[in-house]
């Protein structure tokens, strides 16, 4: 295994260029989180009795970190899984034939996908702060949230790459959406405080790494974490390392 930064950069650059070349897709991917924020956030803010969410904040404000995490969850996993499209449209061969180890392709791809996901996450964060009128976090807290988002997105892109390396059919997309992305989102604390969940749901939610990412972001953005920042961060970090290792292993095993 030889790390070649230039080649990682080449793969990263391709992701960024593709991202910049498809602005309509970016707008499309921001639409859903904003809809959630406006419709769910706005709706439940007036519907739920005061004190339904911890800390006495409005439901919209409470929801915002969850929606930022959701944006990152969706874009990161699909960015990783889109290696399937590269296989379908041929560009994967170009990368596999290049004189570089496959780990560099995985790293470049992970960083590239994460970069685009973080950009979209930050956009939602900024728009969300404006919409919800939540108080602006301090620069230090923002930096912390950024670090969180970085590890979370790298973690999830790697998950996507691992899935794409195992299931190589285009039909996988629907499968990933229904069996992985949606459960990860809905079975987390993104929409509902974990303390208010019934027993079984609470148990499942506690096992979901997204829960810790949301909790960490909530802690840093609006000061309403309940699981503790060190634990939140540890889950994201461990998830990232394990997913990257698995993705690298599985991707290096794939045939052309």
């Amino acid at each position: 295994m030889a790390i070649e930064p230039v080649k990682i950069y080449a793969v990263w650059l391709r992701e960024i260029k593709r991202f910049l070349n498809s602005k309509s897709r970016m707008v499309g991917s921001l639409a859903m989180p904003l809809l959630f924020l406006v419709a769910l956030g706005g709706g439940f803010s007036s519907f739920l009795p005061a004190g339904s969410v911890p800390g006495g904040v409005s439901y919209s404000t409470y929801l915002l970190p969850g929606i930022v995490a959701m944006t990152i969850l969706f874009t990161s996993i699909f960015s990783g899984v889109s290696i399937i499209w590269d296989r379908e449209f041929g560009f994967l061969k170009e990368m596999l034939a290049a004189p570089t180890g496959r780990e560099n392709i995985v790293f470049g791809r992970t960083l590239g996908g994460a970069t685009t996901a973080i950009i979209q996450g930050l956009m939602i964060l900024v728009i969300g702060l404006v919409i919800t009128g939540a108080p602006l976090p301090s620069p230090l807290h923002m930096a912390g949230a950024f670090v969180f988002m970085s590890f979370l997105s790298c973690f999830l892109v790697a998950v996507g790459i691992a899935i794409a390396s195992t299931l190589q059919e285009v039909e996988t997309f629907q499968l990933v959406m229904n069996l992985i992305v949606m459960p990860l989102f809905f079975l987390s604390n993104a929409l509902i405080p974990i303390e208010k969940m019934p027993g079984i749901l609470k148990g499942v939610t506690t096992l979901n790494p997204i829960t810790y990412a949301v909790d960490g972001l909530r802690d840093l953005m609006i000061g309403q974490g309940t699981l503790g920042l060190p634990l939140d961060f540890a889950v994201c970090l461990v998830g990232f390392i394990v997913a990257l290792a698995v993705a690298t292993y599985l991707f290096s095993k794939t045939a052309i």
Partner: peptide, 16 residues
């Protein structure tokens, strides 16, 4: 089979 990236410019395909 084609393996150029259609969502990049010709220049970027060669550059990368």
């Amino acid at each position: 089979d084609p393996t150029v990236d259609t969502r990049l410019s010709a220049y970027d395909n060669l550059d990368i």
